[in-house]
Amino acid sequence: MGLISEVLLLPFAPVRGSGWAIKQVLREAERIYYDPAAIRAGLARLEEQLEAGEITEEEFDQQEDELLDRLETATRQGAGRGDGTAPQ
């Protein structure tokens, strides 16, 4: 951008900066959500809850399906990078 356009757009700098910050937070949240280690830990906790009688078999099946879907998505996304992790 030229100097004139930079000066004219200066009042909008906080908005552009906020947009960048929101994108960074979203990217980090997605990285954590699709982290295979976190998903596997969730599956282990879920199994412990079932064995302890804290949840029913139906609740277990539903939550397990959701976690396995996330794990499959994470694995597919990581396969493109070759390191087994979700994209950043």
Rank of each mutant, 00 (worst) to 15 (best):
S18A: 14
D35Q: 05
R16N: 07
G78T: 01
R40I: 07
S18K: 12
A86S: 09
L26E: 05
I55E: 07
D61N: 10
A37G: 03
P87Q: 04
A52N: 14
E72N: 04
G84L: 01
L9H: 10
K23T: 00
L43A: 06
V15D: 09
M1K: 06
I22Q: 13
T56H: 09
I39M: 00
T56A: 08
G17E: 14
V15K: 06
Y33V: 02
R16E: 13
Q49F: 11
G42E: 09
D83W: 06
A29Q: 13
P36T: 05
L8W: 09
L50I: 14
L9I: 12
A37C: 05
E58L: 14
E6N: 09
G80Q: 03
L8P: 00
L50Q: 06
L10S: 15
P36K: 03
G2M: 02
G53V: 15
A52D: 15
I22V: 11
L71W: 12
G78S: 02
I55M: 02
E59F: 11
I4K: 03
T73V: 06
E58R: 06
E51D: 09
E72L: 11
L26Y: 09
G82C: 01
Q88G: 00
A29G: 07
L68C: 11
R27A: 08
T85S: 06
L8A: 10
A79S: 08
Y33S: 02
L3Q: 08
V25Q: 00
D83T: 00
D83L: 02
Q77W: 04
